[in-house]
């Protein structure tokens, strides 16, 4: 009597054969026991459970939990940010005040320095003017004295020259017996005085 032997491997029919005898029945039964399911093959029920729980988790997260949590986080960040912005603004105001004060201070300092400079300028000018006046007076007095000096020297020289000329003409008159030409005598005296002076 022919029997049909079906060997299964991981749920799929692998081979079907017709065997004449019944002798192989025991060995193929052993083989069927040995052909355990593949350790790598995925199982439908596990896929179903995993997929189900993942999809439930995804839906709950995507539509309920995550948006709520994210909104809370964003709210807090926004409030923190606005707080820090307020602090920044106050700090900026304070900085502006400080800058303004410093500007005013600098202006006052500049004005004071300008006034001091102006005062110094005035004093300097006055001093210079007085100095110039005194110098001018001194220069005038000196020029006056110089002039007087020169005039006295001129006068003295003229006296000396006339005296010498008189003496010389007298000497010449005595020696020659006649009075020499007055212009010649005065020229000779002048040249002699020039020679003695130089």
């Amino acid at each position: 009597m022919p029997t049909v032997i079906v060997t299964q491997s991981s749920g799929h029919v692998v081979q079907v054969r017709l065997v004449a005898g019944v002798t192989t029945e025991t060995t193929s039964a052993k083989a069927a026991v040995k052909a355990a399911p593949n350790p790598i093959a995925p199982e439908t029920k596990e896929i179903a459970w995993a997929a189900g729980s993942f999809i439930v988790l995804l839906v709950v997260m995507r539509y309920f939990l995550f948006p709520k949590l994210k909104k809370g986080m964003d709210d807090r960040y926004a409030s923190v940010r606005s707080d820090s912005e307020g602090a920044d603004r106050v700090r900026a105001d304070a900085n502006a005040d400080v800058a303004e004060y410093e500007k005013a201070l600098a202006a006052v300092r500049a004005e004071a320095a300008g006034r001091v400079d102006a005062a110094r300028q005035t004093v300097d000018n006055e001093r210079n003017a007085q100095l110039a006046q005194v110098n001018g007076r001194i220069a005038a007095a000196r020029a006056d004295a110089d002039q007087k000096n020169a005039a006295a020297r001129e006068a003295a020289q003229g006296d000396v020259a006339s005296a010498v000329a008189t003496v010389a003409s007298r000497v010449a008159e005595i020696a020659l017996g006649k009075a020499p030409d007055a212009s010649v005598v005065s020229a000779a005296v002048a040249s002699a005085m020039e020679g003695s002076r130089s």
Partner: peptide
């Protein structure tokens, strides 16, 4: 089975 239990627990 245990795999399904772990998957459900994870969720």
């Amino acid at each position: 089975n245990k795999i399904a239990l772990i998957a459900v627990l994870a969720a």
